[in-house]
């Protein structure tokens, strides 16, 4: 019996040592070979989840690249930002989406849930440090272990194609064709119920990584601007606006913050209450481009430009009606 247990123990030990060694070696090779390079004329990037992914059509914005990705928690954004800053000396500004749902505890699901680990871990495994592995292991060890081979497989692919630029794997503008129809807005009761059911607690992990991103940018001399992308007013229904304001005024009072949420959108410019469709993204991105050209990244400028745009839109509507 003792011999059996000893050999089983040795086998498991050798196996896991081998696996860890392989993981470390492949992660090391990937880390040194994976290219996430911006074009030379791009100095601005926007990072965040689906809100910014759908809103910023970088085809209409000069010097700008959208590297946002749906369902991305700040943990992954941090790893991506670290890589982008390291590989792109021309990067001057990071616009980082910071909206109401990113402080909710449900954000932890974006790190620990099966489908999110499946979607993110293989691409990010080589960026992750011991700390991130520890966090993920504490949240969902079994899923993490199951995904390790996929991570190795993906990294082998990266190493094999080490001359290619994989930036688009890590985020790009998503064009949505969908239209928000009035019937969607009539589902107000169900939207309300969904929001009610969500925990009002804060995701400490997401906030922690948001702070890490800010610190990283400051240390590396890259300017960071927190932004809130436009959405339909119903998005704020029963949302945590007070809590959100409190964060802006306390934890992030030293960080530049621009709120574009009052940018008025027509129903046919929205895919749903929180995402712009491609028509909305086009108008907003063109407007955003003009805003950037002014070179005054402050809230009064944002507000006055939004006011002008909203007035223009209203006049256009009145004319058409």
């Amino acid at each position: 019996m003792n011999l059996f247990l000893k050999r089983v123990f040795n086998f498991v030990l050798i196996f896991f040592s081998g696996l860890t060694g392989t993981l470390i070696l492949i992660n090391f090779l990937t880390r040194n070979s994976l290219i996430l390079k911006l074009e030379h004329d791009k100095n601005y990037v926007v990072l965040g989840h689906s809100h910014s992914e759908c809103a910023y059509d970088d085809g209409f914005i000069d010097k700008f690249k959208n590297v946002s990705q749906s369902g991305e928690a700040y943990l992954y954004t941090y790893l991506k930002a670290e890589k982008l800053i390291k590989q792109n000396e021309n990067l001057e500004f990071i616009f980082l989406e910071f909206t109401n749902n990113q402080i909710q505890s449900s954000m932890d699901i974006w790190i620990k849930d099966k489908e999110f680990i499946e979607a993110r871990y293989p691409d990010y495994s080589s960026f992750m440090s011991y700390t991130e592995y520890q966090i993920m292991a504490s949240l969902n060890l079994s899923k993490l272990l199951l995904e390790i081979p996929s991570g190795i497989e993906q990294n082998i692919l990266f190493i094999k194609n080490r001359k290619s630029n994989f930036l688009n794997n890590y985020g790009r503008h998503l064009k949505l064709d969908k239209l928000l129809v009035k019937q969607d807005l009539l589902k107000i009761d169900s939207l309300y119920a969904i929001e009610q059911s969500k925990s009002k607690e804060v995701s400490k992990l997401n906030i922690k990584y948001l702070k890490k991103i800010i610190e990283l940018c400051r240390n590396k001399g890259v300017q960071i601007v927190l932004i809130r992308t436009p959405f339909h007013p119903l998005y704020l229904l029963n949302k945590n606006q007070d809590l959100y304001n409190a964060f802006i005024k306390s934890d992030f009072k030293d960080v530049k913050y621009l709120d574009f949420s009052r940018f008025q959108l027509e129903l046919n410019e929205l895919a749903d209450t929180q995402h712009l469709n491609k028509w909305g993204a086009e108008r907003y991105s063109k407007w955003f481009n003009e805003f950037l050209k002014l070179g005054r990244l402050d809230q009064p400028t944002v507000d006055s430009l939004i006011l002008i745009e909203n007035t223009r839109l209203k006049a256009l509507d009145d004319f058409l009606n």
Binding site: F11, F15, G18, K114, K143, I148, I152, E153
Partner: peptide
């Protein structure tokens, strides 16, 4: 050889 089988399982198993 056993480790290779385990590794193959890890590579090709459904999640």
């Amino acid at each position: 050889s056993y480790m290779m089988i385990i590794f193959l399982m890890g590579m090709f198993m459904q999640t």
